[in-house]
C-alpha cells in the first residue's frame, strides 16, 4: 500500500480574479503502518492537501498515485478509494444525521457494500475503539456531548476500516481532557489496527508525543518531512512559519543554556523529566 503525491498544485477559484494557490508543488509519500503528523500554520493548506488524498478535490496540476495508479485517471473508482483512505473532517460531529449512534456509524460500511450484519459488527468494533459505551448505541447522536459526538463521527470513518486514516484537527474546540482522550484513542487505534494515521494539527504539543514522522507545510509547500527530533531542531525556521517546537523543547534548551547538561532532544514531558532527574540525582 502506498499513497503518493507528485508535484501537487491546487488553486481555489482557478481562472477567476479570486484565484488562490493553496498548494504549490507538494511531493509526499505515505506508506504502511506510519503515524504521521501534518503540521502548518492556519491557512497553510493542510485541509486542502488531505482532501486530495482521497480524491475529493481535483488537483489543478500534478498527480496523486494510489499504489501507482493515478486517482484522477478515467475509470479509477474514487468512491472505492475513500474506503481505503478514510478522512475525518474538522468538526466531524456536524456530519451526524441518523436516528441512532449505531446506525450513523453503519453509514460508511454500508456504502462500501457490506451487509447489515457486517456493517453493525464493524460499527461496534469502531465504537469500542473510540471508547463509546454500549449504552449510547441506541441513543440519538444529537443527545451526546461534544466530545462524544466527535468520537462517534470518528468511528463513522473508522468503521470503513481504512488503511490510511486522516484526521483533520480532531482536537479543535475540546478541553484538555477531551483532547488527551481523543489523541490517546487515536494512538491506540494506530497501534491496534496497524493502519497508517495522519494527524493534522497546528500545535506541535498536540502531536509530538505520538507521531513518528512530522510533515511541516508552509504556504502550500512542504517545508520539512522528517522524524520529530530533527524537525524540532529547526526552531527558528518553525517560528518564522508561525509554528513552534513543543514547549518542553524550549524548557530543555533554556536549562541547557543555564549550564545543565540535559538532553535537548526530549520531546515528551516524560523524557524531559527523566533527563532532568538524571542530572539532578547525582547532587543529592
Amino acid at each position: 500500500m502506498e499513497l503518493k503525491t507528485q508535484n501537487l498544485v491546487y488553486e481555489y477559484d482557478s481562472g477567476t480574479d479570486y484565484a488562490k494557490r493553496a498548494l504549490d508543488g507538494v511531493d509526499i509519500t505515505i506508506g504502511k503502518n506510519e503515524f504521521i503528523g501534518l503540521i502548518g500554520h492556519t491557512g497553510s493548506g493542510k485541509s486542502t492537501l488531505i482532501q486530495h488524498l482521497n480524491g475529493l478535490l481535483k488537483a489543478t496540476e500534478g498527480q496523486v498515485l494510489w499504489n501507482g495508479r493515478d486517482i484522477y485517471s478515467a475509470g479509477f473508482d474514487r468512491r472505492e478509494l475513500r474506503g481505503h483512505v478514510g478522512l475525518v473532517f474538522q468538526y466531524p460531529e456536524y456530519q451526524l444525521f441518523e436516528t441512532t449512534v449505531l446506525k450513523d456509524v453503519c453509514f460508511g460500511p454500508k456504502n462500501r457494500g457490506l451487509s447489515e450484519e457486517d456493517a453493525i459488527c464493524r460499527a461496534r468494533e469502531a465504537l469500542t475503539l473510540t471508547g463509546i459505551d454500549e449504552k449510547y448505541y441506541e441513543s440519538s447522536p444529537f443527545d451526546l456531548s461534544g466530545g462524544q459526538k466527535r468520537r462517534v463521527a470518528i468511528a463513522g470513518v473508522l468503521a470503513m476500516q481504512p488503511e490510511i486514516l486522516i484526521l483533520d484537527e480532531p482536537t479543535a474546540g475540546l478541553d484538555p481532557g477531551g483532547r488527551d482522550e481523543i489523541l490517546g484513542r487515536v494512538a491506540g487505534i494506530q497501534r491496534e489496527t496497524g493502519s497508517t494515521v495522519i494527524l493534522v494539527s497546528h500545535s506541535m504539543d498536540d502531536i509530538a508525543e505520538y507521531v513518528d514522522r512530522i510533515i511541516v507545510i508552509d504556504k502550500g509547500c512542504i517545508a520539512f518531512d522528517d522524524v520529530p527530533v530533527r524537525v524540532f531542531s529547526h526552531v527558528e525556521e518553525l517560528e518564522k512559519m508561525g509554528l513552534s517546537a513543543p514547549q518542553i523543547t524550549y524548557v530543555m534548551h533554556t536549562l541547557k543554556n543555564a549550564g545543565f547538561n540535559v538532553d535537548t532532544d526530549a520531546i515528551t514531558v516524560k523524557e524531559a523529566v527523566d533527563s532532568i532527574m538524571g542530572q539532578i540525582r547525582p547532587h543529592f
Binding site: 482521497n54 456536524y94 456530519q95 453509514f107 462500501r112 470503513m160
Partner: peptide
C-alpha cells in the same frame, strides 16, 4: 459553504 463541507464529509464516508 456548510453544504459543501457536509457533502464532502459524507462523500468521504462513501456517500454517492
Amino acid at each position: 459553504e456548510e453544504t459543501d463541507k457536509i457533502k464532502k464529509a459524507q462523500m468521504a464516508r462513501g456517500a454517492d
